[in-house]
């Protein structure tokens, strides 16, 4: 099996995450600013949504945000690796090239889950995390959302040859994906056009799954829009599809290798 090379790639991303202090700090500060500034503003205007404060409503979306940025930054390392030559080390390793894409998606997801879990623990003592938290569902939500974010990032990363290129793309991806996802407001209350965009945005289902986990699905006004099963199916389906496309793009060999791999299953 390919577990050692895959572990090597994951380990490298973990080491880099812990070593780049600035990146680690901004990962926590960015959503905190949202929580304190935007959260307090909307809270004052809206008061409670169902039995929850707007702050509590916002937390699932912010966990999603942590993962969106965390996973995207790992995807960015694909472009970084291309620019600094490490990619040549990866593609001359004795493993089929699609494993590199798969390992990067897993690393992105692992890094994102670790960061989001740490953020959730940071918020819990301040009462921002609701009392009806379902731990199992939360873990599922974190993992599934992280995988979807990582695979979304990888698709853009394999198409970008320079860091500048990738930065531009990310600005046009991260913010629309975040704003049009139900992270800030329930999807069912959006106008039709925006609702349509939200429905085809995989991140919406991640945020929704996290709302199920943190807010509970009992209260109709708590803001969940879809069922848990639909959320999980969409997130995993998107992950598989996006990773597959990224593998096809990554090299001729990976395309051929992946088809061979699927045939031998």
């Amino acid at each position: 099996m390919m577990w050692r090379p895959v572990w090597g790639i994951i380990e490298r991303e973990m080491v880099r995450m812990l070593r780049q202090r600035g990146r680690l700090v901004s990962t926590a500060v960015r959503p905190l600013i949202w929580l304190v500034v935007i959260g307090s503003g909307f809270n004052a205007m809206l008061g409670h949504i169902g039995s929850y404060s707007y702050h509590q409503f916002l937390v699932p979306g912010l966990l999603g945000m942590v993962m969106l940025f965390g996973a995207m930054l790992v995807s960015l390392t694909v472009v970084y690796d291309k620019e600094f030559g490490v990619m040549r080390l990866l593609i001359t390793a004795p493993l089929p090239h699609y494993w590199i894409v798969v390992a990067k998606v897993i690393s992105g997801a692992v890094v994102a889950v670790v960061q989001a879990a740490a953020f959730a623990l940071l918020l819990a003592p301040f009462g921002y995390v609701g009392s009806e938290v379902s731990i199992g569902l939360l873990l599922l939500g974190l993992v599934a959302t992280a995988l979807a974010c990582a695979s979304l990032g990888i698709v853009f990363a394999v198409w970008s040859s320079t860091l500048d290129n990738f930065a531009v793309v990310m600005n046009f991806v991260i913010f629309p994906v975040f704003f049009l996802s139900g992270a800030l407001y329930p999807v069912q209350k959006l106008p039709d056009v925006l609702k349509f965009v939200a429905v085809i945005n995989p991140f919406t289902y991640g945020v929704d799954l996290l709302k199920h986990a943190l807010l509970g699905s009992a209260a109709p006004l708590s803001g969940t829009d879809f069922g848990v099963l639909i959320d999980v199916a969409v997130l995993l389906g998107f992950t598989v599809g996006a990773t597959f496309i990224a593998c096809l793009r990554f090299s001729h060999e990976s395309a051929a290798g992946l088809l061979q791999f699927l045939q031998t299953r």
Binding site: R4, P5, W7, G8, E11, L90, P94, L95
Partner: peptide, 9 residues
Amino acid sequence: RFAGLLRNL
């Protein structure tokens, strides 16, 4: 270590 792991050592 990274290079070794990539080589499955």
